[in-house]
Simulated scan of single mutants.
Amino acid sequence: MMKISVIGSGAMGCLFGSLLSVKNDVVIIGRNKNTVDFINNHGITINSSEKFYPKAALNGSYYEKSDLAVIMVKAYDTAKALENNKKLIENSQYILTLQNGLGNAENILEFAERDKIFIGTTEHNSSVEKTGYICHGGNGATIIGGLSGSAEKIADVFSECGISAKASNDVFRVIWKKLLLNAAVNAVTAVLGIPTGFIVKNNNVLEICQNLVSEAVKTAESCNLSFSADEIMQSVRNLSLRQPHAFTSMYSDITNNRKTEIDSINGAIVSIAEKNNISVPFNRMITDMIHALEMKGISGI
Rank of each mutant, 00 (worst) to 15 (best):
123 E>D: 11
263 D>Y: 03
283 N>A: 11
297 G>R: 06
291 H>C: 03
86 K>M: 12
30 G>I: 13
172 F>E: 15
132 G>M: 04
137 G>Y: 03
70 V>L: 03
178 K>N: 07
181 L>A: 03
211 N>I: 05
253 D>Q: 12
73 V>E: 09
209 C>Y: 07
238 N>D: 09
258 R>W: 10
226 S>Q: 08
115 D>L: 02
116 K>E: 05
69 A>F: 08
190 A>Y: 02
81 A>E: 03
281 P>S: 04
13 G>M: 08
265 I>C: 00
136 H>G: 10
262 I>S: 06
135 C>V: 14
289 M>H: 11
19 L>D: 03
217 V>N: 09
21 S>D: 11
87 K>Y: 06
287 T>R: 01
241 L>M: 15
133 Y>K: 14
82 L>Q: 03
21 S>Q: 10
94 Y>D: 10
150 S>P: 03
57 A>T: 04
49 S>M: 09
142 T>G: 08
258 R>D: 06
6 V>N: 01
168 S>R: 12
174 V>M: 07
231 E>Q: 10
171 V>W: 08
182 N>I: 04
13 G>Q: 12
35 T>M: 04
77 D>T: 09
73 V>I: 11
151 A>K: 02
7 I>R: 02
195 P>R: 09
275 K>E: 07
145 G>A: 11
257 N>D: 13
285 M>K: 14
183 A>E: 03
285 M>R: 14
13 G>W: 12
169 N>Q: 10
268 A>F: 02
225 L>D: 10
275 K>D: 02
197 G>Y: 09
83 E>P: 02
230 D>S: 14
218 K>N: 13
63 Y>R: 03
285 M>A: 15
122 T>V: 05
98 L>Y: 04
6 V>A: 01
205 V>D: 01
43 G>L: 04
51 K>Q: 15
66 S>E: 07
151 A>H: 08
294 E>G: 05
251 Y>N: 01
91 N>V: 09
251 Y>P: 00
229 A>M: 15
204 N>A: 13
204 N>K: 14
18 S>A: 13
247 F>Q: 05
222 S>C: 04
32 N>C: 05
124 H>F: 14
48 S>E: 14
252 S>M: 13
144 I>C: 08
137 G>V: 09
248 T>P: 12
165 A>Q: 09
100 N>G: 02
178 K>L: 05
260 T>F: 08
9 S>F: 00
99 Q>E: 11
205 V>H: 00
78 T>R: 06
9 S>T: 02
114 R>L: 15
20 L>H: 02
101 G>Y: 01
293 L>R: 13
3 K>G: 00
229 A>L: 14
283 N>I: 09
72 M>S: 06
149 G>D: 10
148 S>Q: 07
215 E>W: 11
95 I>C: 04
181 L>V: 09
45 T>S: 15
300 G>F: 12
60 G>P: 07
90 E>H: 11
61 S>H: 12
196 T>V: 03
295 M>F: 06
131 T>K: 12
64 E>D: 07
138 G>F: 01
183 A>L: 06
287 T>N: 13
82 L>D: 12
91 N>T: 08
79 A>R: 03
108 I>Q: 01
